[in-house]
Amino acid sequence: MAKPTSLKLHTKQNIVGWAFVIPASILIFTFFFYPIGKAFLLSFQTGFGANAQYAGLVNYKRLLSDNTFKTSLVNVLTFLVLQVPVMLLLALALAYTLNDHKLKFRALFRTALFLPCATSLVSYSIVFRSLFALDGFMNALLLNLNVIQSPINWLANPWTAKLVIMLALTWRWTGYNMIFFLSALQNIDRSIFEAAIIDGANGFNRFFKITIPMLKPIILLTAIMSTNGTLQLFDETVNITNGGPTNATLSISQYIYRLSFQYSPRFPYAAAMSFVVFVLVGILSAMQMRVGDKR
């Protein structure tokens, strides 16, 4: 007698379980998987709506000869290569310095360093844009200190514009990455450090021989997160430099946005470009998962 009842109960629970997970699943399929499939199909067309035509690889071929696309790709890769390592090293050094129980004002330092994370990307971009304006605070400060003789037009010169974007990114995200390192450092057994001190290892050696190897998974994780973020850069370049001067800070996402929503809409071509971003991010996320598995 007991068996059929429990079986019925099990079936009932199974149905309830599916009822719990189905709404979210439908939403994810509708708003993530369907659009990415749609973008993929779109990327093989020319024209859209009633004029849509299958065009094979035309859009992808055009990408190869699109200099603006190349510029945006190079810009984003420049940010990636120059800014991400500096930021991660800085975040690591800050976390390492903060992870000291004898340190005074520890909570205060942590709060201050973490504070930039509370600002939205558009807000802090506008603050940086204002700080580095031609008649802005940075030039006033440097002129007063006699570091420079005439104001620097930060946002109008390709390299200084890139520099401002990278400074801004570093300001906003160093504390964010520091939090990861700090939480990982707190999980390292302190007796390892104590043993190293007894063995005569100095702070420098402890940092490079113990801390860095033990944090390797987190370092890789933050590196891959920063890479994904940089590949999808949008809010900062739009609001600090608007991609200029002459596309020197144009990001891929901003170019896609321009193609789709600012010029006469060229959705299929933009879709091909966005699919390239998807593949780039996909490769890096796959790496992230593999790193995650090894932990």
Binding site: F31, F32, P35, S253, I256, Y257, A271, S274, G282, A286
Partner: peptide, 24 residues
Amino acid sequence: KDLLMRILLLSMMIPFAAIMIPLF
């Protein structure tokens, strides 16, 4: 459900720029 969950997690790899046009 475990399989479905794994499929859903793949959605985290999709950058917004890649789906914004179809979503729009």
